[in-house]
């Protein structure tokens, strides 16, 4: 039971829910950038929610099946085709041995999640099959899939084809995308006016946006409060004495272009952080294309925790809808 890669797409990686527990050693959690989408794709094909699937960014792969399977594509609107025939997103469909899965042009979003019944069964590294390409860890030999790869599949349990996710439970960013931010840890480094403006302006996703971080541009450079550089920090006002970088933290090198660290984040460094995108909105970032307008929306800890509960309720609703 395997899937042959005929063409890989742009950068298609095997991802699951990641490998927590090694960030202090510089190895990020990794895993699907849009976790809810991967969980949902797995539910659609009858897998465990955390099974490994494929994350295809902007462009889909071409895959040939060597055995019968059930497939679902969620996340970005990247329309699947089976032997050239259009199939639905967010809906599981049966695939026969010998059939070829390919994709049409991306219509919206950025990352599609392809779940296959049985899940992808490459060897786990540090407890996860997620591909961390920069560290050459997980996936197929620590890299994105390539033409000629044969991706092994695990044993599949149920025949789950024909399930579909109700429209209201298909989460996608609006336009402009709204990303809720908890200000800190270095909020005190910028002026109040500058901080207000950061939230008022509409930014735009830059071309430099990947699994490690998403860069935004188009807003006004930040105004810093003058200081004596502390020991270990450089003279640039955006420098700090090296510190830990949380997932979702927004560093602004030189005060010009904010970068939100994502699943393959670097664990520390010397840039100040204006705040942190809340965990509930991290999935949305994974669905932003370059040039997409985006706004940062100020929230507080209560708002962040309430948003996390909303996400948990949405996940519960998806489970309920697909259990029937």
């Amino acid at each position: 039971m395997a899937v042959k890669v005929l063409s890989p797409g742009l950068m298609t990686t095997i991802q699951d829910m990641g490998r927590p527990g090694y960030y202090h050693l510089g190895i990020p959690i990794g895993g699907a950038m849009d976790r809810l989408a991967l969980r949902t794709a797995n539910m659609l094909v009858g897998n465990d929610e955390g099974a490994a699937g494929l994350e295809a960014v902007f462009m889909g792969p071409e895959l040939e099946f060597t055995s019968d399977a059930v497939v679902a594509v969620t996340g970005a609107d990247l329309p699947p085709k089976l032997d050239g025939q259009a199939m639905e997103c967010w809906t599981s469909f049966p695939v026969k041995a010998g059939q070829v899965l390919s994709f049409d042009y991306l219509r919206s979003g950025a990352r599609a999640y392809i779940a296959i019944s049985g899940g992808i069964d490459t060897p786990p590294a540090l407890g996860s099959r997620s591909t961390y390409a920069i560290g050459a860890l997980g996936g197929v030999d620590g890299r994105a899939i390539q033409a000629g790869d044969e991706l092994p599949l695990g044993p599949s349990s149920a025949d789950a084809a024909g399930k579909t996710v109700p429209d209201a439970l298909r989460r996608a960013p609006g336009s402009p995308a709204e990303l809720r931010v908890l200000p800190g840890l270095y909020w005190h480094r910028i002026t109040e006016t500058s901080g207000d403006r950061f939230f008022e302006e509409t930014w735009k996703v830059a071309g430099e946006a990947d699994r490690m971080g998403y860069r935004f541009q188009g807003g006004t450079p930040l105004d810093f409060i003058e200081r004596e550089p502390p020991f270990g920090a450089g003279s640039d006002p955006s420098n700090i004495t090296d510190a830990c970088y949380p997932y979702g933290s927004i560093q602004v090198p030189g005060g010009t272009e904010p970068i939100v660290l994502h699943r393959d984040a670097v664990s520390g460094g010397g840039y100040f952080m204006i705040g942190t995108v809340i965990s509930a909105d991290m999935d949305l970032i994974g669905q932003l294309q370059p040039n997409t307008p985006a706004r940062f929306v100020r929230t507080d800890m209560h708002g962040a925790l309430a948003a996390r509960q909303d996400r948990a309720r949405m996940l519960a609703s998806i489970r309920e809808a697909l259990a029937q």
Partner: peptide, 9 residues
């Protein structure tokens, strides 16, 4: 000829 990707041409 179409672009398969978003980005800069």
């Amino acid at each position: 000829i179409r672009s398969p990707l978003p980005g800069t041409f």
